[in-house]
Design a protein around this nucleic acid. Structure first.
Ligand code: MN
Ligand code: MN
Ligand code: ZN
Ligand code: ZN
Lengths: 145, 145
DNA sequence: TCAACAGTTTAGAATTGTTATAATGTAGTT
DNA sequence: AACTACATTATAACAATTCTAAACTGTTGA
């Protein structure tokens, strides 16, 4: 979803009724320079902070899933205890900072294409994604515990 | 955890009291030729089928997490709606069959080492894992829906 | 050998994250 | 304006997981 202010038309174009809740959520999600990662909880907080409107939790879930189904959000699994969503819907790789629980997009050029030599017979590959778990390199960390 | 029958001593060695529940769970999990993937639900079923003992759900969770903490089980995130565990605790790659929801270990030789050219400053890389999502290659699948 | 203790198991309650329900509200159409 | 289909909402239901506290058991050492 491009970064313009006219989410009313965008929503209509993709077959979603542009209700004020949806428009507001689109503002929060897509009216920004860079893509980002969030949990439903993050999103609820962002909405209540940035908008003067209160949106029901059910609507947040509904809209997130509607946008996911339409291809404007992507669900990411890092920690099975939490659902992350990504406004960057392309196939791409991630760093996961285990210190901060932060999910960071890999730069396209920072990782060489993954070379798969043998696939499972009769199946086609839908996506190849790399997850790089990182943590502080501080040697002393454990000594002082 | 090696594939022998003496889980009593193994458990003691790693500092876990060898209760009969734990020994039985170890039998189910580790007394086999190949490593495998399971959900807590799978495991509960396997226990009730293979053992004549009923183990409380809380104990299954406790023991799985105890074994995970000791490094004999690894949690895998593919689908944020389900927790998978792996008796193969090494860093390794997976195919995920989206038709069957089956998780399959990548053969070491079937994928070339991932080349990361640039890391996050001040962080060390703990693991690099690739997830390859595959599905049926049947062209007609969608036409007949 | 066995009492005492610490660690473990257990059933059930509590919590969390998510989905379903059904009444009310609203956008789009006429 | 009225109609209708779709959307929102509060709340209930649900599933997965964790917590609780009482009962139980492996281990230790007197
Ligand atoms: Mn989803
Ligand atoms: Mn865990
Ligand atoms: Zn991303
Ligand atoms: Zn595996």
């Amino acid at each position: 979803m491009p970064k313009t202010f006219n989410f009313i038309e965008k929503l209509r174009e993709v077959g979603l009724r542009p209700t004020k809740q949806r428009v507001n959520m689109c503002e929060v999600l897509f009216n920004r320079e860079k893509t980002f990662h969030f949990t439903i909880n993050d999103l609820v907080k962002m909405i209540s902070e940035k908008m003067n409107q209160k949106i029901s939790l059910a609507t947040v879930y509904n809209t997130v899933h509607a946008l996911e189904k339409k291809g404007y959000l992507k669900e990411i699994s890092i920690d099975s205890h939490k659902s992350y969503f990504d406004t960057n819907t392309s196939v791409h790789h991630h760093f996961f900072d285990e210190d901060t629980n932060e999910l960071i997009d890999c730069d396209e050029n920072d990782i060489e294409p993954v070379n798969i030599k043998k696939n499972i017979t009769g199946k086609k590959i839908n996506s190849v994604e790399v997850l790089i778990k990182v943590a502080s390199d501080n040697q002393n960390q454990k000594k002082f515990k």
